[in-house]
C-alpha cells in the first residue's frame, strides 16, 4: 500500500522529531559541553532570547537584504546571459569556456578578496550571492531554450514570426517547467503581441492617474 502525500509528509515530520530527540538524548546522556555540541533545547533557547531581546533583528534584516539583492541580480544576469548564449552560437563558443572556468573557482574563497576590493559593506555579500545564483540560471536557461522542438520552430517560421516573437512566445515558455508555462504566458503576450507604442498606450489606460488631467 502506498502512503498518500499527506501521510508521507507526516512521516517526514515524525522522523525530524525522532532525530531531534536522539540528539537531545545523546548530549544529555554523555554530558557533552555546549561548546562541542549544544543540545537542540539550548539552541532553541538561545534563538528565542536573541529574537525576544531584539538583538538578532538588524542582522536578520541585513542578511535577507543581501540575499534578495544577490538573488535578483544573479537571476536577472543569468537569465539574460542564458538567452544571449542560446540565441548566438558565436557568443556561446567565445564566452562559455570562461563562464565554466569561473565556476570552478570556489566562490567562498573569493570572499576575503571581495572584502578587500569592495569593503565591509553589503556589496561583497550581494556579489557573492549573485555569483552563486548566476550559473545555474544561465545554464538552465541555455539548455531550456535549446530544447525547443524542430516542428514547432518550423510552425513559427511558417507563421512569419520574428526572432523575438519566437524567443518570447515559443522558446521561453517551452523551456519553462509545465507548471510555470501558464504564468509566463501573459507576460510574454504583453511584451511581444503587439508593437511597443500600443502597449504603452494600454499601460497608460490602465493607470489613468498617470495621464495628464483633461480640461
Amino acid at each position: 500500500m502506498n502512503p498518500t502525500p499527506m501521510q508521507a509528509r507526516l512521516l517526514a515530520a515524525a522522523l525530524f522529531l525522532v532525530l531531534l530527540g536522539l540528539w537531545e538524548l545523546v548530549v544529555r546522556q554523555w554530558g557533552l559541553s555546549a561548546l562541542v555540541l549544544p543540545a537542540p533545547s539550548a539552541v532553541a533557547q538561545a534563538l528565542w532570547s536573541g529574537l525576544a531581546s531584539g538583538y538578532f533583528w538588524p542582522h536578520v534584516r541585513a542578511t535577507l537584504q543581501a540575499l534578495f539583492l544577490g538573488l535578483a541580480a544573479g537571476s536577472i544576469v543569468g537569465l539574460l546571459a542564458g538567452m544571449a548564449l542560446a540565441e548566438s552560437e558565436l557568443l556561446e563558443r567565445v564566452l562559455k569556456p570562461y563562464v565554466v572556468v569561473s565556476q570552478v573557482v570556489p566562490k567562498l574563497a573569493l570572499a576575503p578578496l571581495f572584502v578587500l576590493w569592495f569593503g565591509f559593506g553589503m556589496l561583497p555579500t550581494v556579489l557573492i550571492t549573485a555569483l552563486i545564483c548566476f550559473f545555474p540560471l544561465m545554464e538552465n536557461t541555455l539548455t531550456g531554450l535549446r530544447q525547443t522542438d524542430a516542428q514547432r520552430l518550423q510552425l513559427f517560421r511558417m507563421l512569419g514570426a520574428t526572432r523575438l516573437q519566437t524567443l518570447l512566445r515559443l522558446k521561453l515558455p517551452m523551456g519553462l517547467p509545465p507548471s510555470l508555462r501558464g504564468c509566463a504566458w501573459p507576460w510574454c503576450w504583453r511584451w511581444s503581441a503587439s508593437s511597443w507604442p500600443s502597449s504603452w498606450v494600454r499601460a497608460k489606460a490602465w493607470a489613468p492617474w498617470s495621464s495628464p488631467p483633461r480640461a
Binding site: 516542428q151 510552425l155 515559443l170 508555462r181 509566463a184 504566458w185
Partner: peptide, 12 residues
Amino acid sequence: FMFQAPTLLDWL
C-alpha cells in the same frame, strides 16, 4: 500549413 503532428502549444 498543417504538420504531421498537431504541434499545438500546450500552455495555450
